[in-house]
Amino acid sequence: MFHPLRKLQYRDPVRDIILGFMHNWLEGILEHQLRALWGIGRDTARSKTLAEFDEADDDEWTDSDISESETERNELKQEAQLFQDPVQWDQWRDTYLATYGASSSQASGTSTPRSIDLNLNEDVQMSYGDLIASEDAMEEDSDHTPVPASDMPADEPAHDESDTFQDIAVKGSWSFDKSRLAQLRAAIQEIILPTWVARPPGNLGEPGHRSLKADQYLILFTVILPLVIPEIGFDGSSDRQTIMLKSFQDLVAATIILTAFQTSIEAAV
């Protein structure tokens, strides 16, 4: 079928395409945020999918995995300390020579972790002091490009490896508790709106009302929720709530920019 837009010679059908934000954003992104991520009106299919995600997250890091990871970390530490102790270096060198010898090293074409050709054969006896001297000579022969001083302060506190990781992520099955949901529903009914504005249902999230329309999602996320969410909050954890509030702020800002009649590069950044 011939479309009148094809008469516009300057129109590029790829670069000049306009996505319908009503279906893609209002009835897509905002609906997913409300029903799936916040659990307000979450259906059975979404609940089942999110439960599978939660189960996968729980199995991702078990006590056994953490223990194995700690063991591997300690082994790497021991290997790193090997070349810092002259005695351990000599022991490793002797063991390596006795185990592999010159033929094995030359056949495989491998090099030592210090990136120095030891020429491992029976005639070479390199000590730890010889190794350090060789490295110093290599550094002197290299290009003497000045290295800028570090910007890190001299009194930078050392990283405390004893700090335990705190998982403050929100699981897929997260949802508003009953008290916060009740406050949200009360606010929907009490907030003063123009008569021509489509007010979201007062029993939001219950199966008693039909699916929300696009303009109801728009009013909910740009007018009602910005007035209510900062007051009722999301969660009891202060760290988690801070992150969720920041995410909600970004979502509202993106919605306002997307639905504006005009915008600019300054507003986008």
Results as ranks from 00 to 15, higher is better:
65 D>G: 02
65 D>K: 06
66 I>Y: 09
66 I>M: 10
70 E>C: 10
71 T>E: 10
74 N>F: 11
74 N>V: 09
75 E>Y: 14
75 E>Q: 15
77 K>W: 09
82 L>M: 03
84 Q>L: 15
84 Q>H: 09
88 Q>G: 05
88 Q>P: 00
88 Q>H: 07
88 Q>F: 03
88 Q>D: 06
90 D>N: 08
92 W>A: 05
94 D>R: 15
95 T>A: 14
95 T>G: 15
97 L>R: 09
98 A>L: 07
98 A>S: 11
98 A>V: 01
98 A>M: 07
100 Y>E: 06
101 G>W: 06
103 S>I: 14
104 S>T: 12
105 S>R: 14
108 S>P: 02
111 S>Y: 10
112 T>F: 15
116 I>V: 13
117 D>Q: 11
118 L>C: 09
122 E>N: 07
123 D>L: 09
123 D>A: 08
123 D>W: 04
124 V>Q: 08
124 V>L: 01
125 Q>G: 06
125 Q>V: 12
126 M>D: 11
126 M>F: 07
127 S>N: 02
128 Y>M: 01
130 D>V: 00
132 I>P: 02
132 I>A: 02
133 A>I: 07
135 E>F: 06
135 E>W: 11
135 E>V: 08
136 D>G: 04
137 A>N: 04
138 M>F: 11
139 E>A: 06
139 E>N: 10
141 D>C: 09
141 D>V: 02
143 D>L: 14
144 H>L: 13
144 H>R: 14
147 V>Q: 06
148 P>D: 15
149 A>M: 08
149 A>N: 03
150 S>Y: 02
150 S>W: 02
151 D>T: 13
155 D>H: 05
155 D>I: 05
157 P>A: 05
161 E>H: 15
162 S>F: 02
166 Q>H: 12
166 Q>C: 10
166 Q>F: 13
167 D>P: 06
170 V>C: 10
170 V>H: 04
172 G>K: 03
173 S>T: 15
173 S>Y: 00
176 F>I: 03
176 F>Y: 04
176 F>A: 03
177 D>C: 09
